[in-house]
Amino acid sequence: MTGSVAELFFLAFFGLAAIWFGIVVFRTHSMVRSALALLFSQTAIGAMFLVMQAEFLGVLQIMMMATEMSVMALFMVMFMMDPGGMGAMDMSHQKRLSLRAGGVGLLAALAVSWLPDWGPAAINIPSAARQTELLGIELLGRSMFIFESAGLTILTSMIAATMVAIAPRKSGVTHDC
């Protein structure tokens, strides 16, 4: 039972950390801080995966988000008026609506997670090495089509995104509109 208590504790700890960092994302004025808060939120989620014994996914999440959020930070600095947050500028709108939507979403999701009877917890978790192996078999076996589609999707979106993002040829179009 101690294992379960420890698991519960770490789950809650990292989970609350993730939520807290998630809130920081929208409360800080500095854009780099905002992006890095999101990174730490995602890292805490990765740690939650580790607590839930999904080792591969946890490490993967921690790894992927480092890059993703660093790029995010760069874009924040590029595209915001006040990336250092010195002006303490308010960058939000329709606050009340958003708060309400968030609150309703929270209540609904909480109700769904606590009300139903989820049945007994599974006991036998495959070991980390076995999980990785099983996941590989799953990916390259039954779910291969989905996996390959995902791969193609990401390739397509990479190419498309690059196409959209590169500078258009100058053909008398001014950028001053």
């Binding site: 500095s30 780099v32 008026m81 006040d82 990336p83 250092g84 947050g85 010195m86 002006g87």
Partner: peptide
């Protein structure tokens, strides 16, 4: 001088 690279403003 003169420029805050953070606030770039």
């Amino acid at each position: 001088p003169g420029n805050c690279p953070k606030c770039g403003m």
